[in-house]
């Protein structure tokens, strides 16, 4: 077992434990933070595979932005744990079945002889840039699906905004552009006048 293996097993263990933590943590904020930890160690594993662009993108997008917004929402929620646990045993068989199915699928995919070849990292020259290669592939070979995915995401975003946007009557809000455009002359008039004699 060399150094890279040790690092891999370390990251893998942390990922698994953090994943368990996400599920069993009572406090939703703790669960979200465990998920962050899982993402970070997952990024570490990708880094071992020399997929540095993917690893950093995972940190940047998921940890740096998505999970922050997630935490944002979770922190403000008032979760009732008792209510949450009510249906646990009723849904347990269904959940267990689903989990078993997923484990079976993973064994099937990862255990087969063809995929085990793929799991080994391909050695590259030191000046090989993962980012550049990924960009080249994405914008040449896969440009059509890539653009399609982007448009779908855009449509989803616009739809989400359109669904939640509602005009309510009687809402008081400030128009910042208007406030910024205010000039001194609009509010203030400087009058020059003589001093008046004191009333006797």
């Amino acid at each position: 077992m060399n150094f890279v293996d040790v690092v891999f097993y370390l990251f893998a263990t942390i990922t698994l434990l953090a994943g368990v933590g996400v599920v069993v943590a009572r406090n939703p904020v703790h669960a979200a933070l465990f998920l962050v930890l899982a993402f970070c160690s997952g990024a570490g594993i990708w880094m071992l595979l020399e997929a540095e662009f993917l690893a950093i993108a995972l940190i940047l997008v998921y940890v740096g932005a998505v999970m922050v917004l997630f935490l944002f929402v979770v922190m403000m929620l008032d979760v009732n744990l008792v209510q949450l646990r009510e249906g646990f045993w009723r849904w347990f068989p269904f959940g267990a079945l689903l989990a078993g199915l997923m484990v079976f699928e993973m064994i099937w995919v990862l255990g087969s002889s063809q995929t085990s070849e793929l799991s080994k990292a391909v050695a590259h020259a030191p000046d090989y840039s993962n980012t550049k290669e990924l960009g080249r592939l994405l914008y040449t070979h896969y440009v059509y699906p890539f653009e399609l995915a982007a448009v779908i995401l855009l449509v989803a975003m616009v739809a989400a905004i359109a669904l939640t946007l509602r005009r309510r009557a009687g809402v008081k809000s400030q128009n910042i552009s208007k406030q910024v455009k205010v000039k001194k002359a609009d509010r203030l008039r400087i009058v020059s006048m003589k001093s008046e004699p004191k009333n006797q």
């Binding site: 540095e52 740096g64 980012t131």
Partner: peptide, 21 residues
């Protein structure tokens, strides 16, 4: 490293966690 700029961006985006926590 080749992805230095990305690394910097990722690290600065992690700083927000300390503040949130």
């Amino acid at each position: 490293v080749n992805a230095g700029l990305l690394y910097i961006l990722a690290m600065t985006s992690l700083g927000v966690y300390g503040v949130i926590i």
